[in-house]
Design a protein around this nucleic acid. Structure first.
Lengths: 255, 255
DNA sequence: GCTACGACCTCACGCGACGTGAGGGTCAAG
DNA sequence: CTTGACCCTCACGTCGCGTGAGGTCGTAGC
């Protein structure tokens, strides 16, 4: 074991691992990247950690608990003088990052939940479900060249995954709105209002408020809605009232 | 370019990349792992994607948008017959995973925000901030052997990062509660109530409702609060009313 | 003195979903 | 025949370690 007298006490990796709940491998890793280094080695090369190393390690452990990366922790602890501004900057960055993540996760959650709801309510042709997913994903095929350009730009801006997620969510909204419409639910019903609100949010995420683009989209939709509906497994327009009309009326009914 | 007659159309990687917004490298990767393979190759080894490949790719893109891993997507698309149950299982797993993540992210957010608030309100000795972090992390040193055992078990159960995060959050709560107490804010104030609620949540996360452990913790706190307070940069007990007492009264004031 | 055992050491691969070159062949247009 | 866009196959880097593999060190018991 180790000598126990006074402030000269040293610890081995294993002892530190037990004391902190970290693994020996993690301590090796911190050593490799220079985050927490043993200030001494025995003749045989065994690490000996001193009091100062221990203190540094505890700070690292605390900061890891906040979700900071090892690199960020290194910058925070870089100045041996406590540099509050560096810490504040890193924490603010982390806060922003967490907010982003929270939005992403809750969006994804809604989208997956919506799709599951569609499944439970007996989608049009559940046995063709992935075929429907394919059709949703290929909606772009019906767009005009200008719209496809817009989509391409948005895709590089937001990433393909985000675009696809919004399309799937839009599909789920449309399907559930059609259900409500079929039951003659009034357009000022809170469910209808909430769903059309999200519908429009998705819309603005694409066209960014440019009304010319909205008009072009509507025109393109009019031109190709027959084949689009067929591919999505939806009733042909004319078989019932128009969903777009329902959404428009809901929009107008907003306070 | 490519021949354009009929259903025999073939696409190159680049064409598919442009059409889907994915990168050529991603398509290569999908090929490597066998997720989407080009059904033909030219004599020179160039990939030629057929209609069926294209359709599969669109499904993959849609499912990626929901945050599924490539492996999960592979299992969903494994049965060429649409297997709704497989999809449902994967989506439910994803939903659970997203819920977990949402909790984690919002917890972390609160913890980081609380720490930033502490910084802004001029922590006790902001120039010693990381030293304070170290002290928080080393609170365990003051525990009895039995408590340290408990902590060790919790650490393997929840991971060291989660433990540290809770300690930091607890510290932030204590600091802000002391501020409210100093202003004689009554214990039924909603802010006090919310903070003591979270205080107790953190407590139960450790002791799991075992009152014997709570009693032991209180006893240990009584024994070592002097040195603990000194290390955290807090006023010695006796300099003012006791925070633990304030929390207890808030707890009793619950409806 | 020998042996066992535990703790320590240094490589080095693996994960997930690609990004990013390096170093070459292929192909249609001019 | 050249040019330039496109294609190919390695192969390493990312992040924070987990998980062996194969060997050394140190002490306690026989």
């Amino acid at each position: 074991m180790t000598g126990r007298q006074g402030p000269e006490q040293r610890w081995s990796v294993g002892e530190l691992a037990r004391a902190t709940g970290l693994t020996v491998r993690a301590l090796h890793h911190y050593d490799d990247i220079g985050l927490v280094t043993a200030s001494e080695r025995t003749a045989a090369g065994h690490r000996r950690y001193a009091e100062a190393d221990l203190r540094r390690l505890y700070r690292v452990r605390a900061l890891r608990g906040l979700g900071l990366s090892l690199e960020e922790i290194a910058t925070v602890l870089a100045r041996d003088v406590d540099d509050v501004s560096a810490l504040r900057a890193v924490l603010e960055g982390q806060l922003a990052h967490l907010d982003e993540q929270a939005v992403r996760v809750s969006r994804l959650r809604e989208q997956v939940a919506g799709l599951l709801a569609s499944l439970d309510e007996g989608m049009p042709g559940p046995e063709r479900f992935t075929a429907t997913l394919e059709a949703i994903s290929r909606m772009d095929d019906h767009y005009t060249p200008a719209q496809q350009d817009l989509m391409a730009r948005k895709r590089t801006e937001l990433g393909p995954a985000a675009i696809e997620a919004m399309k799937v969510e839009w599909f789920g909204l449309a399907r559930r709105l059609m259900g409500l419409q079929a039951q003659d639910v009034p357009v000022d019903d809170p469910r209808v209002q909430e769903m059309t609100k999200r519908w429009d949010e998705i819309g603005t995420a694409f066209h960014g408020g440019d009304t010319a683009i909205v008009a072009a989209t509507d025109a393109a939709y009019e031109g190709s809605k027959e084949s689009l509906n067929r591919q999505l497994g939806w009733p042909a327009p004319g078989d019932g009232p128009d969903l777009v009309d329902y959404v428009r009326r809901a929009r107008e009914a907003r306070t």
